[in-house]
Computed example of a mutant assay.
Amino acid sequence: MNEILDTVALVLVLIGALLCLTAAIGLLRFHDVPTRLHAATKPQVLGLILICIAIALALRAWPVVAFLVPIVMIQLATAPLSAHMVARQAYRNGTIDERSLYVDELADAGRTPPAAGG
């Protein structure tokens, strides 16, 4: 049973590392802010979760799980928030091609100054 769990942990680490690598490549290769944010958040977060599960399977100890759960929770909380703030600022700076947006929910909010609550 130990060999099976170690093999599963190895496969999870490899898949997680591959996802993190594709996130880094996506940051370099994609040309606009929304696609870069997609590459920076989604595969990177999933890669980190898979690596944390692999560590928990490999070490098989409850203190390790108790240490890894807050790491995953903080990552799940901060990655979408930071991506949202970067995307909103890029929209306000005008670095997002507005013609490529299907729905523009910030069209009215972008015209009001930030200090006015918009």
Score class of each variant (00 low, 15 high):
residue 87 A to V: 00
residue 46 L to M: 15
residue 29 R to G: 07
residue 41 T to Q: 03
residue 82 S to E: 10
residue 109 A to W: 07
residue 39 A to C: 12
residue 48 L to R: 04
residue 58 A to F: 05
residue 94 G to R: 03
residue 96 I to D: 00
residue 60 R to I: 00
residue 29 R to T: 15
residue 105 E to C: 00
residue 106 L to M: 15
residue 67 F to I: 03
residue 92 R to W: 13
residue 101 L to T: 11
residue 23 A to I: 02
residue 13 V to L: 07
residue 27 L to M: 15
residue 83 A to H: 10
residue 58 A to L: 02
residue 38 H to G: 12
residue 93 N to Y: 11
residue 48 L to S: 15
residue 2 N to E: 08
residue 53 I to N: 06
residue 14 L to V: 09
residue 110 G to T: 03
residue 75 Q to W: 08
residue 15 I to W: 06
residue 5 L to C: 11
residue 49 I to Q: 09
residue 55 I to M: 01
residue 110 G to R: 14
residue 56 A to G: 11
residue 40 A to R: 09
residue 98 E to K: 12
residue 46 L to P: 13
residue 83 A to D: 08
residue 75 Q to V: 00
residue 33 V to S: 03
residue 75 Q to R: 09
residue 3 E to M: 05
residue 101 L to N: 07
residue 10 L to C: 06
residue 11 V to E: 10
residue 86 V to M: 15
residue 82 S to D: 08
residue 70 P to Y: 13
residue 5 L to K: 00
residue 83 A to C: 10
residue 54 A to S: 15
residue 59 L to I: 00
residue 69 V to K: 06
residue 35 T to G: 10
residue 31 H to D: 08
residue 36 R to Y: 10
residue 102 Y to S: 06
residue 4 I to F: 08
residue 20 C to Y: 09
residue 115 A to W: 10
residue 87 A to N: 08
residue 52 C to V: 10
residue 116 A to N: 11
residue 51 I to D: 07
residue 115 A to M: 10
residue 105 E to N: 02
residue 36 R to N: 13
residue 27 L to D: 08
residue 35 T to C: 05
residue 11 V to W: 14
residue 34 P to I: 03
residue 85 M to N: 07
residue 50 L to I: 02
residue 90 A to R: 00
residue 86 V to Q: 14
residue 37 L to S: 03
residue 32 D to Y: 10
residue 5 L to N: 05
residue 8 V to N: 04
residue 70 P to W: 05
residue 33 V to K: 02
residue 117 G to E: 10
residue 63 P to E: 04
residue 111 R to H: 11
residue 50 L to A: 05
residue 41 T to L: 03
residue 45 V to D: 04
residue 64 V to T: 14
residue 61 A to C: 11
residue 66 A to C: 11
residue 14 L to T: 02
residue 57 L to Q: 09
residue 17 A to S: 14
residue 7 T to C: 12
residue 18 L to M: 15
residue 37 L to A: 07
residue 25 I to Q: 13
residue 93 N to S: 12
residue 12 L to A: 09
residue 69 V to L: 15
residue 8 V to M: 06
residue 86 V to E: 09
residue 16 G to C: 04
residue 85 M to G: 09
residue 75 Q to C: 07
residue 71 I to K: 01
residue 96 I to Q: 03
residue 117 G to D: 04
residue 6 D to K: 07
residue 92 R to M: 03
residue 57 L to I: 05
